[in-house]
Amino acid sequence: MCRWLAYSGSPVTLDELLYKPANSLVMQSRHSRLGVEPMNGDGFGVGWYDGHAPNPGLFRSVEPAWSDRNLQELARHVRSGVVLAHIRATTGTAVQQTNCHPFRHGQWLWMHNGVIDRFLELKRDLQLAVAPDLFPHIEGTTDSETLFHLALSFGLTDDPPSAVAAAVGVVEDVARAHGVPFPVQGTFATTDGRHVWAFRYSSEGRSRSLFRNADVTVLRQQYPDNPVLHDLADDTRLVVSEPLGDLRGAWLEVPESTCLVIGDGVDELVPFAPRPPG
């Protein structure tokens, strides 16, 4: 379906995240190892915070990530301590810029790997649950953007885990009325530029893959001669659809039905479950 990464830590250039790892996100756009399909060529996007404006920068394109020279240029020069990046494999909606992730609202970014099953049947009822003042800001046609605006409607900016639980709860409630047994599949990430929240959940209990990096200081002790680890800051936190390399012990799977909270150089795993309406 899609592949994504979320980074929090000391500022790095985007190419350190998107191009330089052995199994980089750009590499995954052609040769994904754990995705539903190996090719993720239906567009890409990257959002970042650099302190120059209250809201994040955003660059999205319908070009395949592996061949976009503008992305290469941008990645060498943009430096940030919080980054969301996404490569897209459409599940049926159009290949257009407004359907590329991450999605932005104010200082918030959002991205998703997965699907809302039979979304076109559910779309009208789901979008009627979006707050009236937010509805005009839905620009594209994806299930992911609708889910983002549902989360915003239920208080994403105040309590992200609770808001996402309510949004997913609404989707499952609407789906039941339409006879869709397992509507939600995916991994989600959102950030306000200070903290990152990542979710792994599916209605069926068989979510798409999601990993986080192990503590860098521990890895240095295990691999004292590895030069890559000495270039990483202690506060490096990465959440990825699939590992960026093959170093044993470097990547930890995020459990099913879990919310990962990252901020201030630490991370916390907490259980996640949808909250039914009412």
Rank of each mutant, 00 (worst) to 15 (best):
C2W: 01
R3S: 04
W4Q: 07
L5H: 04
Y7D: 06
G9R: 13
S10Q: 15
D15T: 10
D15S: 14
E16A: 15
L17K: 03
Y19D: 14
K20L: 14
K20I: 10
P21C: 07
P21E: 07
A22Y: 04
N23I: 13
S24H: 01
S24K: 01
S24V: 03
L25R: 12
V26R: 06
R33N: 10
V36I: 11
V36A: 15
E37A: 14
E37Y: 13
E37G: 10
P38N: 06
P38W: 11
M39D: 13
M39L: 15
D42P: 00
G43M: 11
G45P: 03
V46E: 04
Y49A: 01
D50V: 07
D50M: 07
G51S: 11
G51R: 10
L58S: 11
L58W: 12
E63G: 04
P64I: 07
P64C: 04
W66L: 09
S67Q: 10
R69F: 10
Q72H: 15
L74G: 05
L74T: 06
L74V: 07
L74E: 04
A75R: 02
R76K: 15
S80L: 05
V82A: 00
V83Q: 04
T90P: 01
T91V: 12
V95W: 08
V95T: 15
T98N: 13
T98S: 15
T98V: 13
T98A: 15
H105Q: 14
G106C: 03
Q107C: 08
M111S: 12
I116S: 11
I116K: 10
L120M: 15
E121G: 10
E121Q: 13
L122H: 09
K123V: 09
D125E: 15
L126P: 10
A129K: 14
A129M: 12
A131V: 04
D133T: 12
D133P: 07
L134Y: 12
H137E: 10
E139Y: 12
E139D: 13
T141H: 13
D143M: 03
F148M: 14
F148K: 05
L150D: 06
A151L: 06
G155H: 10
D159F: 08
P161H: 09
S162E: 13
A163D: 03
V164S: 03
A167Q: 01
V168F: 08
G169D: 01
E172K: 02
D173F: 14
F188I: 13
F188N: 03
A189M: 01
T190Y: 00
D192Y: 11
D192H: 11
G193D: 05
H195L: 00
H195Q: 00
W197H: 04
R200S: 04
R200A: 02
Y201V: 05
Y201S: 05
S202Q: 06
S202W: 07
E204N: 08
S209M: 07
S209F: 08
R212K: 14
N213M: 07
V218G: 00
V218D: 04
Q221F: 02
Q222K: 08
P224V: 08
D225K: 14
H230V: 05
L232E: 12
L232Q: 14
D234S: 13
L238M: 13
S241T: 06
S241K: 03
P243D: 05
G245F: 09
G249D: 08
L252R: 08
E253P: 02
V254L: 02
E256M: 04
S257D: 13
L260G: 00
V261F: 03
V261I: 15
G263S: 00
D264H: 11
G265M: 02
F272Q: 00
R275C: 15
P277C: 09
